[in-house]
Design a protein around this nucleic acid. Structure first.
Lengths: 182, 182
DNA sequence: GAAAATCGTCAATTTTATTTAACAAGTTAG
DNA sequence: CTAACTTGTTAAATAAAATTGACGATTTTC
């Protein structure tokens, strides 16, 4: 697989410029269909064509190719695109690449008995989440509770904390953390 | 005219890699004819093709487009490519772009009476040249002489100096100066 | 020296990109 | 709610890039 997704880059810069395929094509002296197939990687534009298009944005070929990787400006993620992170019995699925973001979104799954550890977690972040399925025992500082589906939490991660699934079924949580700590 | 000479760039990187058109084409899974027409700007390669070719060099698209301008690595110059510089009755034709070089080569033409000036020239360079045609009176410091076709000179430009055509015909000189001062 | 390779280029064909023209879906105007 | 507009996509036609196969010129080999 080619990691150089020219179509995605073009679509990105076009939308960032606030142009429709037709508008861009018109100004570049081309047709909307060409833009469409290029953006979907159904054809590889000649450098001459690409240059015409980029001049509208405006963006030089150099700048276009030097653009940050697609991961850096990716906004939407298919379920299978989430990056899996496994720590013991806890399975995280992360949204996006944390090298480029300050906000970490995780789709977490705690199997029965899963535990983030006796030695409590502590890091320079703020985090929160919502329980989707099952139950979780959450300890933050001196406070402890059991959250069930629909419940939520939000706290300063500098306080020692611990997640533990003491139920009989998986617990699923969607959480956010800034800055990222995993 | 487009100042982005893709053909020249490709030819440059290919030769720098020590490859013939055929060898490059073979390794890239293309044909020599394609390379030929691309290098002569008779066709604009698709980005896909260009990528295949550059992977052989190897060079990324980003690096390729970020390459220094062709003027920077230009080696051979047609007569009409020399950049004309006129100062009074003296006409210079410079070889290459001094932004990228420390050696300035000039094809100079002094019309009868042409004179670099009573107030002698002085700059932090070393310069020399050969008279091709006509005669020139050259003064350097306290020394003065008349040079005719075939004669030459070389001196430290920090010494005050002056060129003067006291003959009846044009005087043509090819000179060099480092670092450039014009 | 002549034969065999290799070089870059070019004309004709094939393949691919781009245009033309239509479509379905979504939005705005009335 | 319809009618007019915009959106992005697609199929067939056209334009352009890439391949095939050849050429003359230069270099290498014997």
């Amino acid at each position: 697989m080619d990691d150089f997704d020219l179509g995605a880059r073009l679509r990105y810069v076009r939308q960032a410029a606030g142009l429709s395929q037709r508008e861009l094509a018109k100004r570049a002296g081309m047709t909307n269909a060409a833009i469409s197939v290029i953006e979907n990687n159904q054809s590889s534009p000649s450098v001459a064509s690409l240059k015409k298009v980029l001049e509208v944005i405006p963006l030089s070929l150099t700048e276009f190719f030097a653009l940050e990787t697609p991961a850096e400006y990716k906004i939407f993620f298919k379920e299978e695109e989430l990056v899996p992170i496994t720590q013991g019995a806890v399975h995280y699925r992360q949204v996006g690449d944390m090298r480029y973001h300050n906000l970490q979104i995780l789709h977490e799954r705690y199997t029965p008995g899963a535990d983030t550890g006796r030695s409590m977690l502590q890091h320079e972040s703020e985090e929160g989440g919502v329980v989707i399925e099952g139950t979780i025992e959450l300890t933050v500082g001196e406070r402890k509770t059991i959250l069930k589906a629909g419940d939520a939490y939000l706290f300063d991660s500098r306080q020692p904390h611990r997640f533990r699934n003491i139920g009989k079924t998986d617990c699923v949580i969607v959480s956010a953390c800034t800055p990222p700590y995993l």
